[in-house]
């Protein structure tokens, strides 16, 4: 199996275990007599430490797929492994608990609670995770520092700029150390420059902290900077969607962060270190 992965994903230059495994997943929606197949026999894997994009035109099923990965919905058939747990047939409470402990959400419209300060917003997942006040406070401060907002932690969301709001949202998504971060059009409500800053932040978190990041987007300029793109058209996987649909090419690893990120050498060093650390385990 391991060799197959390597040949299949030749553009991925290091080996690690899959954190998301989607196997033969179908999702059907029924309205009246009509059955609509939003996802048609979809299978793929996402590995720990990957930063990938899910792309496709509207109606392609990418939102449905994101909802499934985020455990906001269940597949009609097929299996979804998150880590080493089959999460495709959980009840609502179990889903909530898995969302809480293993998934960090970043939304297009930030979705910060307006009555809570930045710090309290970041604490929110840990409140539902029953983390003690002291630990919560500590972790939230750390998370805000990691997105560069330690000076704004007592601000209410409406006193923050769009980019700052999205940074708070990112801090909230990573504060409880989830397995994956799931971002739905995270730059959609931001101008190009601020959007680039957020993408840079994601890339930094991915490279420096090894976070697995899944970004749902229709922006090919974001897609081509990812490690990999999972393309969807009409509910089916579409392997070369960037070239075939968006008419752009993937950037190679060295160019992934070009224009958005200045320190390429450091990243390269980290990658080698990553590879060395993981190789014996596989």
């Amino acid at each position: 199996m391991a060799t197959e992965y390597l040949t299949q994903r030749s553009q991925i230059d290091y080996v690690t275990e899959p954190v998301v495994r989607i196997e033969y997943v179908n999702k059907e929606f029924t309205s009246g007599d009509e059955t609509f197949k939003a996802l048609d026999d979809v299978s793929f894997e996402i590995h720990r430490g990957e930063m990938i994009a899910i792309m496709g035109p509207s109606g392609s099923g990418k939102s449905t797929l994101m909802n499934l990965i985020g455990l906001l919905d269940t597949p009609t058939s097929g299996t979804y492994w998150l880590g080493d747990q089959d999460v495709s047939k959980l009840d609502r409470t179990e889903q909530a608990n898995v969302r809480n402990s293993q998934i960090g959400f970043v939304f297009q419209s930030f979705n910060l609670l307006p009555r809570l300060t930045a710090l309290k917003n970041v604490e929110l997942p840990m409140i539902y995770g029953r983390v003690s006040l002291r630990e919560r406070d500590l972790a939230a401060r750390e998370a805000l520092a990691s997105v560069g907002l330690e000076s704004k932690m007592n601000n209410l969301p409406n006193t923050l700029s769009g980019g700052q709001k999205q940074r708070v949202a990112v801090a909230r998504a990573l504060v409880h150390k989830p397995n994956i971060i799931l971002a739905d059009e995270p730059t959609g409500a931001l101008d190009t420059r601020t959007g680039n800053e957020i993408m840079h932040l994601f890339r930094t978190l991915n490279r420096e902290h090894g976070l697995t990041i899944i970004i749902v987007t229709h922006d090919p300029d974001i897609g081509r900077r990812m490690d990999r793109v999972i393309g969807l058209r009409d509910g089916k996987l579409s392997p070369n969607i960037l070239r075939e649909y968006y008419n752009v090419e993937m950037l190679d690893a060295d160019n992934e962060t070009i224009t958005i990120e200045p320190t390429r050498e450091k990243v390269a060093v980290e990658r080698i270190a990553n590879q060395a650390a993981i190789a014996p385990a596989s």
């Binding site: 906001l72 609502r92 409470t93 909530a96 402990s101 959400f105 979705n111 609670l113 929110l124 539902y128």
Partner: peptide, 16 residues
Amino acid sequence: TREIGVRKALGATDSD
């Protein structure tokens, strides 16, 4: 409703 959705996404259970 939106707030409820956010809370649920972040891991609030039905009973929460």
